[in-house]
Amino acid sequence: MSLAPAIRLENVSLGYGSNVVLRDVNFDVRQGEVLVLLGGSGCGKSTLLKHMIGLHAPFTGRILIHGRDLVSARGEERNEILRSFGVMYQMGALFGSMTLLENVLLPLEEFTDLPREAMEAVAHMKLELVGLGHVLHHLPDEISGGMQKRAAIARAMALDPSILFLDEPSAGLDPATSAEVDHLIRMLKLHLGITFVIVTHELASIYAISDRAIFLDRETGTIVATGSPADLRDHSKIPGIRAFFRRQSEAVAYRSTS
């Protein structure tokens, strides 16, 4: 018996105002899978992510998280769904007035009845796991961008969610720090079985972490290809995908396929 998908999108059309960015999107994210959303700038990757985490409601369709519809859920049911996943935002979005420890403690204080000592132990463990145990009393402004991203992952993991959404986890990081974040993602997947949905442009990261990639097309507002990154790179005939993986302009990729 196959496991139920961690996330399922059914006939989802979404956008801003009256502007439809993506239409009739259908896909599943399997449990324990690392799924990467790919596409050129402006194709709607981040918009799709924002809809998947409930920040915006789609025009039509259902977004099921562990079988429960995030779009139609209200009140406590919606909060429960929201607490079942963690999100790391592109800029970290750590609370600037709180130390890293306090940032990770916040969801534990708000949503669990753990004794104080236990909360501190859990927060400390999460920060140690992402390699920040030595700076846990620092404010976000006092650490580097890469550390802020790792701290944001620790905060997203505070309640041990089974799904993590990461928006550009490697953007703006040097290759070594980016590789550290990739290693962390692989480790979390392997040891904790976390399902990841990641928006990224970094080819090295895509090859290093993803099981499957979904390629979005700006022109048609649809998913044009799904598969492993290597498959998409080697076998896709779509100029946009070839251009993406070969770091070419689309016009050059189009000439090389025709």
């Binding site: 400390h124 140690e128 145990g133 009393h137 040891h191």
Partner: peptide, 19 residues
């Protein structure tokens, strides 16, 4: 046991005191 091992190093360290 794998999970225990993953978190072990962090959990065994004392929480550093606040400045």
């Amino acid at each position: 046991a794998r999970l225990f091992e993953l978190y072990e190093s962090g959990a065994k360290k004392e929480l550093p005191p606040e400045p």
